[in-house]
């Protein structure tokens, strides 16, 4: 696998950084080299934030920012009104958006022609399963389906392990997230 770069767009508190760390962790467990890092600015709850991943089969040497990601993940669709979420995206890039709209509508809204657009209503999935709008984990399921950058089952096992460590006394949170990831994996639409 050649070097793959991902940019996550979210709002402070939505878990863009956590999602980048979870996918990085899972990729390491399947033998990849990775980087996962947020952009630390003056972020506050609700302000636009970025997080990034690099994934490759070979050691990754560069430590500069990511300006031309092949994949962009948008956790909050309202960001598309204020942030240029497709900046630097190549012609064959992938955009994955948490939205109730169709892929065709998003494609039109972003003025894209050749790039692939995927949509998933991750907020709805999260609200139905976890009773909270935390779209980051379901987006992981959708990302794996859309990009095929990792195998689904090992990714799921890795996320489960990390969440278990993070929430040792709340098995319902771990199980809920896993359920949400699975559902998003199944429901993501082109």
């Amino acid at each position: 696998m050649a070097l793959l770069e991902i940019r996550w767009h979210g709002r402070g508190g939505q878990g863009a950084k956590t999602a980048a760390l979870l996918i990085g962790d899972a990729a390491v467990e399947t033998g990849k080299y990775i980087q996962a890092f947020p952009e630390y600015g003056p972020e506050r709850m609700g302000a636009p934030v970025f997080a990034f991943n690099r994934i490759a089969d070979e050691p990754i040497l560069q430590h500069c920012g990511i300006k031309t990601p092949q994949i962009v993940v948008v956790l909050d669709p309202t960001l598309m009104e204020t942030v240029d979420v497709t900046e630097g995206l190549p012609e064959d890039g992938i955009v994955l958006v948490n939205s109730q709209k169709s892929a065709e509508e998003i494609k039109k809204q972003l003025g894209l022609t050749s790039q692939k657009v995927y949509v998933i209503d991750a907020s709805k999935i999260s609200e139905e399963i976890l009773n909270r709008d935390l779209p980051n984990t379901p987006m992981l399921g959708a990302l794996i389906k859309a990009s095929k950058l990792l195998e689904f089952e090992p990714m799921l096992a890795s996320v489960q392990n990390r969440l278990k460590k993070k929430f040792p006394n709340r098995p319902e949170v771990v199980q809920g997230n896993i359920k949400a990831i699975k559902r998003a994996y199944e429901e993501v639409g082109v």
Binding site: L21, K32, Q35, A36, F37, Y40, H63
Partner: peptide, 12 residues
Amino acid sequence: TDAFIISHGMER
């Protein structure tokens, strides 16, 4: 280490 670039960047 370099602040944030390495301190807060996750790697293998």
